[in-house]
Design a protein around this nucleic acid. Structure first.
Lengths: 140, 140
DNA sequence: GCTTGACCCTCCAGTCACTGGAGCCTCTAG
DNA sequence: CTAGAGGCTCCAGTGACTGGAGGGTCAAGC
């Protein structure tokens, strides 16, 4: 199977598949003409990667998950640990974004948004408290 | 004022300030010895940038906001538009992450996480449908 | 005057996960 | 034989820094 069909079946762009080969995630065989030849096992790996990536796992996580996937002797605890850590990161990211959202929507709500220059958003950006780090003798 | 003190007062790393000069966000004067010389106005701009970046605005948004900040004739509507679009992006990102979180936590919850190889997480990554399952009465 | 060390300078490379493009080769259909 | 689709490699760019090499400048202390 050529790369184009592998792309269709896995849902990954052709370019991405070549990139995944370059970084060693897959190792398709080659035909005599130099074309990559994807067998069913490679296509399954590509689809696995596509789904892992769509769940936000990093490439390095994907590498780990793929090796666990291929290892019949794996412990599910290893998989769960990787997934749980990623889940924590997602939760943390959501919390950060919620904080940003709260600050920003507060500013936006107070801006009348007309043709006048007066703007609480700019005022907030200009004047929000930001305590400078003190160097040796930086006075107040 | 040298770059180190400007960094302390603005809260930005020295490297980042040099980078901001490189991309044209600030234009500090130079002393005879080649050192950057930051005046109060530049430091205010740096602090403004630090706060805009900490709210997640892109550099290009920051460029726009900075020019609005410096333009006494601005319309607050222009500022509000930039901020509202960013707010929408944040909300959208949160929604995406919530979706990921739901999928992933479903998988993680079902994995017993012990020494056995059986693992619903890997199974989900390996077998999840590329397209949503079609129900009999859902047409298509 | 000299040394030390903090601070400053520029330029280059790396991050992450692709993505676009140039320039070329191969295959298949008509 | 030609056209077009698809394959190949290699290089460069994305965003927003960050680290490091290799070197210049300055102020304090001896």
């Amino acid at each position: 199977m050529n790369i184009g069909e592998a792309a269709d079946q896995s849902g990954l762009p052709v370019k991405t598949i070549r990139y995944y080969e370059q970084i060693g995630l897959v190792r398709p065989a080659r035909e005599a003409n130099g074309y990559r030849d994807f067998r069913a096992a490679e296509v399954r790996k590509l689809a696995f990667l596509a789904r892992a990536r769509s769940l936000g796992f990093s490439i390095e996580d994907c590498r780990t998950l793929l090796s666990l996937y291929e290892d019949g002797q794996r412990a599910s605890a290893d998989v769960k640990r990787v997934a749980s850590e990623h889940l924590d990161q997602i939760s943390q990211k959501i919390a950060e974004l919620e904080t940003l959202k709260a600050s920003l929507s507060h500013l936006v709500a107070r801006c009348h948004g007309d043709e006048r220059p007066d703007c609480p958003i700019l005022a907030g950006l200009a004047e929000a408290p930001k305590q400078p780090k003190r160097r040796r003798d930086a006075g107040a």
